[in-house]
């Protein structure tokens, strides 16, 4: 028996040494952008840098990247007339490649009319119900996620440029409060993992900075595109908390705040993540 345990211990030590080397190897490669003064991070690092080279390769090749299936689906939908007004997205906005450039990078944006910020999903549905007189798409529906991905894809490579001053500042503060509030049975805040412990190996994965520049993202785990608020829900569920509702004011405030934490990072939509 003692021999068996002995060899197990040797094996375990060898495994630990190996994983330590692997962790070190990956950390050394992580590239980021310098954060503006007064930011929480010194270096802002995209979630891309925390993924394996195989996952990165999948994102880098526009043909292999399964997120592009959604981009192509939505490109057709962009031209498709829906609703009683007989309009498509194209009737008002023209070619998405030019008119939607930079739009996704600056979301969520303040809406004077609603006197609150709106994110991309909400804006798409406002367009549908007000201008096209069509049924708004439900959150998590293939159509809404595809269109969100398509519009945000038009900003790919452009820096995240969310505005947080003026009327947005109370929302920004609310988002910050949510970010640092511990929730759930595990009593964890967003900051517990993504600010204090990013880069560490946990739950068979590297904790990222929790940046939003790649959303909606093709998650290999789900084998489909996942919108940001679904990921927020997932995180809250994982800490055994009761998640806020997608597209609720709470998640909207959090989206604004988290976007600011990644300010200047290039948009990567459609990204590929675990």
């Amino acid at each position: 028996m003692s021999i068996r345990y002995g060899s197990l211990a040797v094996l375990a030590t060898a495994a630990l040494t190996l994983s330590a080397i692997a962790v070190f190897g990956q950390e050394a490669e992580r590239m980021g952008i310098p954060a503006p003064p007064g930011h929480v991070f010194k270096t802002i690092i995209s979630g891309y840098q925390f993924r394996t080279k195989e996952t990165r390769a999948l994102q880098d090749d526009d043909l292999e990247n399964p997120g592009f299936l959604a981009v192509e689906r939505a490109a057709d939908m962009w031209k498709t007339v829906d609703g009683s007004e007989g309009k498509s997205c194209m009737s008002c906005h023209g070619e998405a490649e030019t008119t939607m450039k930079g739009v996704g990078a600056a979301m969520p944006k303040w809406s004077e009319k609603l006197n609150k910020p709106v994110n991309l999903e909400q804006q798409i549905n406002i367009c549908r119900s007000e201008h096209m007189k069509a049924q708004p798409w439900p959150f998590k529906s293939k159509e809404l996620t595809d269109m969100t991905t398509f519009v945000r894809f038009q900003s790919r490579g452009m820096p995240v440029a969310v505005k947080t001053d003026g009327p947005m500042s109370p929302w920004f503060e609310r988002g910050k409060e949510i970010y640092y509030t511990r929730v759930g049975q595990l009593d964890l805040a967003c900051a517990s993992c993504h600010e204090k412990n990013n880069g560490k190996f946990m739950r068979a994965d590297f904790l990222s900075q929790g940046q939003t520049n790649g959303f909606p993202t093709y998650r290999l785990r789900d084998q489909r595109l996942v919108p940001l608020h679904e990921r927020f829900e997932g995180c809250m569920f994982d800490v055994r908390g009761v998640p806020y509702k997608p597209l609720s004011d709470e998640f909207l405030a959090l989206e604004i705040y988290v976007a600011w934490r990644g300010i200047g990072l290039p948009v990567e939509t459609p990204s590929v993540r675990n």
Binding site: L63, E64, P66, F68, L69, R73, Q223
Partner: peptide
């Protein structure tokens, strides 16, 4: 030759 097809599988 690279191919990708959309399917639920």
């Amino acid at each position: 030759i690279k191919t990708l097809v959309s399917h639920l599988m």
